[in-house]
Design a protein around this nucleic acid. Structure first.
Lengths: 346, 346
DNA sequence: TTGTACGCGTTATCAT
DNA sequence: ATGATAACGCGTACAA
């Protein structure tokens, strides 16, 4: 009761108090804060006042005035190795530019996606970064139309006039499967991601084209949609292994699927690559160590984040220029390890 | 020039426009938005106006008035499997309660930590969630004193009056190492995390006490500080293996360290558990599949996130009650797999 | 260059 | 229950 702070949390000092203490007008302080010229005498007075008061600009109040809030919405289906890595890079880039990054995951639940869009809208984000998805296309398009740039990555979806940053899903898959064919396999199976969405479809297409380019037929028994799910891959793998004529090589369309497949392979007492050759999309540190190493397709996560950031900066710097959306496709590396083995028909 | 929107991004409708269209005062709309009683006739008018205009409340403007911004700062050293999992849970909990989660990682860089604290301060976060660290103790204490609750997790640090959510680092390590001793090992090495910080120290202490409880001496050759680093663990492992009397069992104090150690083990052509028994802190999906499986200590990530959230809600709901900080310590599971093997001295 | 005064979109306090 | 109006903290014309 004897102190100045009435409430528990003592109020933070405002620009007015800084101005008072420095003996200048608030306008002067504001211009000081924004790096505009201020008489050198006042400069030091203000700096001192800010320091003594522990003043820190209220970003919310500032955002209300200027057109930009310096806030970015980031939405991912989950925080897997891949999205986590993108987030790590992105968060660094955003911080360096003084932008707030609002991060959430929607677990592929449409209601959550819509909730989040409302939420981001409420917070007046300057930009929206997310995996492309069709279950909220109209709502996303509203963002674009109201001047909030949207950037899709990882997965595409028709509709919104968003910028897009992807990897060469199809070409990388093509190269990976060609490698299996090159070393003598003809019975190559694939556990695909959800083929109803872009990334899943493209990765499967790479597989298909590889086989076709070698004059091989697609055997439907060898193509199983495991919807990016570890458990479905685990079941699917059982189907593959109990086929009358089981495959000698397997291509897994992401990390989850690879884990499910490996679980089953191990459970059945089979060996990679002796009993089956194995390639996975997505690379993780342990793949290097797994038995003789798992050959994998590595996505350029750092470059993905940088590309997203650079698009964001372009869109935000010249907002009048509503040029058509870009689609940028980045290259992947195929890391050759010991999970594939030459196959000679006996 | 022929349209209403002068700028590119058309301004979002405000509460004033909603009030106009509904034919009521803004106060009424505000109370409608906040769930306070409104005459049923106006209710529908307002609902309709909001719908037609596509109005969405400006969270920033609202935050400027009310004491709370409904914004939470979240800071982690990196987005490893562990922190990613916590983030995934936390982001869901925050969203359900309409809170914005500002996520960043500081990469253990003190300057970044201070930057981020300023940043969060600027954004007037209601609460700060981070790994405990001593390199910004004074600054963190300022948050607490100005009424912003701070919650430490994963790692502790002296100083700030923050709430704390940890796992039983020491006890879990103790149990893990006891397991190694129980199955006959006496030459048990440890690759520790940074023993200058709480988590690293505690995990080492568990190791130490386990040995002491069995009347064994601590062999300094068997204790290497790898500072949570994969590469240091990789080097350290070489030291251990080239010792005149190398250890027969190894305890790794986190996932990174385990990866580094496994790299070296593999490179030297050794086998787990035949040549060396192996236990790691932190569990990841691939540990289950790695050869005969890696025995690991699993942190209760979901419970960690829930506990953090519940503390946050308590602190925020009754802000007047500045009761002393809590420290909550959660149990870990030890997942027994095939990476440990009975040792009989020959 | 500096000071004044207004507006940003809300919420809260009054009367009514 | 409702309407008018004063804040909240900052940026920015505009006038000095």
């Amino acid at each position: 009761m004897n102190d100045a702070d009435d409430s528990k949390g003592k109020r933070q000092p405002t620009i007015v108090e800084v101005a008072d203490r420095a003996g200048v007008a608030i306008g002067t302080v504001s211009r000081y804060l924004n790096g505009q010229p201020v008489r050198v005498g006042n400069r030091t007075q203000i700096a001192q006042a800010i320091h003594q008061l522990g003043y820190r600009r209220n970003a919310l109040a500032a955002a209300m005035k200027s057109e930009l809030t310096n806030t970015v919405g980031f939405m991912v289906p989950n925080i897997s190795e891949f999205h986590a890595a993108v987030l790590e890079h992105l968060s660094r880039l955003m911080r360096q530019q003084g932008r707030a990054l609002l991060t959430y995951c929607h677990n592929d639940d449409s209601a959550s996606v819509l909730d989040l869009l409302d939420f981001f809208d409420s917070h007046r984000v300057d930009c929206l970064i997310m995996d492309g998805r069709s279950d909220a296309a109209d709502r996303i398009q509203e963002f674009v139309e109201s001047g909030t740039p949207v950037i899709f990555y990882d997965n595409d979806a028709d509709g919104p006039a968003a910028d897009r940053v992807f990897v060469e899903n199809r070409a990388a898959s093509f190269r990976a499967v060609c490698h299996l064919l090159d070393i003598g396999h003809t019975k190559v199976a694939v556990l695909t991601g959800d083929t109803k969405v872009f990334a899943g479809r493209e990765r499967y297409e790479g597989y298909r084209q590889a086989l076709i380019s070698r004059g091989l037929e697609i055997n439907p028994d060898y193509v199983l949609d495991s919807h990016w799910s570890e458990n479905e891959a685990y079941s699917g793998m059982l189907q593959l292994l109990t086929l009358p004529d089981p495959p000698t090589a397997l291509y897994c369309c992401n990390y989850n699927i690879a884990v499910g497949a490996l679980r089953r392979i191990k459970e059945r007492g089979l060996k990679v690559p002796d009993d089956i050759s194995f390639i996975s999309f997505d690379d993780v540190p342990l793949f290097r160590l797994h038995e003789s190493g798992i050959t994998a397709i590595a996505q350029p996560v750092a470059k993905i984040a940088e590309t997203i950031n650079s698009i964001l900066m372009t869109r935000l710097s010249d907002r009048s220029d509503a040029h058509a959306p870009n689609t940028i496709t980045l290259d992947c590396d195929i890391i050759l390890r010991g999970s594939t083995r030459r196959y000679s028909a006996s």
